[in-house]
Design a protein around this nucleic acid. Structure first.
Length: 311
DNA sequence: TACCAGGAGAGCG
DNA sequence: CGCTCTCATGGT
């Protein structure tokens, strides 16, 4: 135990803490961390362990909130509050969703799912690596990249080791071959090219948050390996553009099934539909549908196997 | 063993 | 434009 690292002054200033409890009623940590928005969290016993920025964190849901435990003490917790979006008035978000049967089922079954607010570079790089990969595989690629090229950070109370996500300048100075060694295949030149464009200053990730959604998206689309879907993921998960609505294969399937009677509606029309139909927090609605549809479809598949295929 | 995965980009008519 | 093909790799 490292409790002796927790120092307090009489005046209550410079309090360095190694753990803290955050009240978060209704927050479903498991759904949030496993819903395909972030890829570095692992379930360990009754909690989740990962690296946020340069810090290893263990999060345990308990008693209407989240207990956070670090490996090393910190001065403040704003970085974690922001990452977990603990201050979002969530009832007001839910109230803006369209009231249709599909949306209500999704909210009903995934209530407690939240959107994170991630670091733009890590989020961008992660989703460049995500294209045509299953979530389990994306996690493997990112783990390899971090273990080979990320900065080591202290993890756990016994001082084990974890790795931070490698910064853009580190990635930019790697070779395509070194990146391919992380099993990212044809995504390697995309990631490399993007890292180099960011280092060169041709795209400034720090400036996008203050831009209108469309301008920020335009900037992201300049980067190699970044199309509409990945751009929207980054706009939503890293910059907090709540109306960005990434349409991937799952969402596309779900939208066609749930809102178009299974008709083969073209992607562009699905994007147009999602932009107008789901409201100012469409991104949130999207994450509910994504999570719901992924679980729903998986359950359906298992049921078919068990009872024998009817089709 | 086949099929497919939180796509993007080039090439075609 | 809109459609098709390819890209690399591994889970199910």
């Amino acid at each position: 135990m490292k409790r002796d690292h927790v120092k307090q002054t009489d005046r209550g200033e410079n309090i360095r803490e190694i753990e803290r409890f955050f009240p978060a009623p209704g927050y479903d940590l498991s759904a949030t961390l496993s819903s395909g928005q972030a890829f570095r969290w692992e379930q360990v016993r009754d909690g989740w362990e990962g690296v946020v920025g340069k810090r290893w964190v263990r999060l345990v849901p308990e008693g209407g909130g989240i207990q956070a435990v670090l490996a090393e003490p910190v001065d403040g917790w704003d970085w974690l509050r922001s990452y977990l979006q603990l201050d979002v008035a969530f009832d007001r978000v839910l109230a803006t969703f369209p009231r249709d049967p599909a949306m209500e089922r999704a909210v009903d079954q995934c209530s407690g799912l939240r959107l994170l607010r991630q670091d733009p570079w890590e989020c961008l790089a992660s989703f460049i690596l995500s294209s045509t990969k299953q979530i389990v595989q994306i996690k493997q690629i990112i783990r390899a990249l971090c273990e080979k090229h990320g900065q080591p950070v202290t993890a756990g109370l016994a001082g084990e080791q974890a790795w931070a996500f490698p910064d853009p300048d580190v990635v930019a100075n790697l070779t395509e071959l070194e990146l391919r060694a992380c099993k990212m295949g044809f995504r390697a030149p995309h990631l490399l090219g993007t890292a180099r464009m960011i280092i060169s200053g041709k795209v400034n990730l720090g400036a996008l948050g203050a831009m209108p959604l469309e301008s920020a998206r335009e900037q992201l689309l300049e980067l190699p390996g970044v199309g509409r879907k990945i751009a929207d993921c980054v706009l939503l998960f890293a910059y907090g553009f709540q109306s960005a609505f990434p349409v991937d294969v799952w969402i596309a399937k779900g939208l066609r099934q749930l809102y178009f009677k299974g008709r083969n509606v073209p992607l562009a029309r699905l994007q147009e539909f999602s932009r107008t139909y789901f409201g100012p927090y469409g991104g949130y609605a999207q994450q509910y549908l994504f999570h719901y549809w992924r679980i729903h479809a998986a359950a359906e598949l298992r049921a078919r196997k068990r009872y024998g295929k009817k089709n």
